[in-house]
Computed example of a mutant assay.
Amino acid sequence: HDVLAWARIPSQPPSNEPTLTDWWQRTKGQTPHALRKGLQSIAMLVPWMIWKQRNECVFENARPSVTTLVDRIKAEAKCWAQAGSLGLRVVLPTNWDVH
């Protein structure tokens, strides 16, 4: 599941970059200025949600699930957008009803 696939950000996940910082610099440079706040929000949201799922697995014996993780990321992104994250409002699909 490519989380950025549902967003309108023209970006690819990290692949051959030596560091995450190299990927970030490349991606930020390739992203139109109007979409950068959305990219920054997603770049914070995704690791946060991965961390939360990891904690559920470690401390609550939950089973890891990519499908559940992606669904939670989408739900949280929608909440952030509704709470006022203008950058996410720009990049999220219009059918999410956050606009």
Rank of each mutant, 00 (worst) to 15 (best):
A43G: 04
A83G: 13
I42C: 06
L20I: 09
W6F: 11
Q82S: 12
V91D: 03
N61E: 07
V66H: 08
V91W: 08
E60P: 00
T19P: 11
M49K: 13
M44C: 11
Q53R: 08
D2V: 04
I50N: 11
P47R: 04
S65F: 11
W6E: 09
S41T: 02
Q25F: 12
W80V: 03
K37I: 03
V70T: 12
E76P: 12
V3E: 08
Q40R: 12
P10R: 04
A43K: 06
V91E: 05
P93T: 00
I50C: 13
E17L: 04
G38H: 05
N95L: 12
W24D: 05
A43P: 03
T31W: 08
W96C: 01
T94E: 14
C57V: 15
R8P: 10
P64N: 06
W96V: 00
D97V: 08
L45D: 07
K52D: 05
H33I: 10
A83V: 04
A83Y: 14
V90N: 08
N61G: 02
P18V: 12
N16E: 09
R36Y: 05
T68E: 14
E56I: 02
M44Q: 10
Q40F: 11
W96L: 08
N61S: 06
C79Y: 04
M44N: 07
